[in-house]
Nucleic acid binder design. Sequence first.
DNA 1: GTCTATATTGTGATAGAC
DNA 2: GTCTATCACAATATAGAC
Lengths: 208, 208
Amino acid sequence: MDNSLPSTEERILEAAKKVFHTRGFEGARMQEIANEAGVNKALVHYYFRNKENLFKAVFEDAFRRVVAKVKEIFVSDLTFPEKIETFLKYYISYLSQNSYLPLFIINSMYEKPGQLKEILDKIDFSPETLLVGIREQVRDELHLDIDPFHVYINILSLCIFPVVARPLIQTIFSYSNEQMTRFYEERTTETPVFILNALKGYENNSAK
Amino acid sequence: MDNSLPSTEERILEAAKKVFHTRGFEGARMQEIANEAGVNKALVHYYFRNKENLFKAVFEDAFRRVVAKVKEIFVSDLTFPEKIETFLKYYISYLSQNSYLPLFIINSMYEKPGQLKEILDKIDFSPETLLVGIREQVRDELHLDIDPFHVYINILSLCIFPVVARPLIQTIFSYSNEQMTRFYEERTTETPVFILNALKGYENNSAK
DNA sequence: GTCTATATTGTGATAGAC
DNA sequence: GTCTATCACAATATAGAC
């Protein structure tokens, strides 16, 4: 484990994460990043040369983290229901700490479409790994034969959207922060039930 | 019906929608809006005074449209399964034409949290209308007694997230535009099945 | 109402001392 | 490596002619 104090470069990167995640590329200010890191603006340029480079570093870090966590859960020895439960439990707690992360990644894809391609080549990530795992488990454990791709997207939708749309939900329904916390706690148990119910419903039709 | 040619003010607003929707508040440039409208930059300020005002007008327009459409479907005489199918069919076609709209609204809530409050007061919109309708139908048509709020969020999640995350999905899975079109077509029929299956699954447990 | 020209401020980036 | 000072330009906004 690394117990040393964070280097200047690390402090700048941490500050950049905070600012880019919440404000996006266009909204971020190099000045604010410098302030957040407790250094001068010029020093930010010294380490990362320009805004574009710094953003790239932040985006890659964010994507790596999310992928690593998803893989950690979905590529494991757990049963399918356990995976869904674990995945949701992880997302509630992880995203409540990093509620800006998924929206940051989504927005970055619109602002800088090409950037993900480079990253995908660099890191060890094949979407097939995830899909194959789901396909086999849905078939062997639940005895269903349905497209795992839609199942996968459905699971992600039900996990991520409620977090991403939090300010919208909270405003429209006039929920307090405490009510929102309870809402997300409820989803931890309710969402797996919803998903597994849906999958069981296919049993009648998929006997082909 | 209004057959007259669009006024200058209308042309500017249309241009502003296009630019704000795709680039967000920070990314938008008054110059680009002026170009898009075919007028001079100064004229944009003449009609809307500043960027903030123009953005407000665009955001309000977007929110009104989305709410109007959701109400049109959910507050109707259709049965619950019909509502879900209609809603999804509408969203596939509507969002494929305006794929930037939901993300624009979500982002605006982070950038300008207070703005929605004003709008909600102005327009005729009560979230209870939507929830009450769902609650009654789930109970009377499907004979279930579950929280309509989570059902409502689940439906929205399954509709909106796949559209919002399109660039991410397309890049990760290396899908062509044609494959993405087919993906969304599939969802039009698959998502209602998924949702209704999930709801039926509650029948066993909710006999209290 | 619509334009050109300009004011004014903000912001990414660099030069150069220490 | 870290700072201060400054450049260069981009972007919002306004003044004033027509």
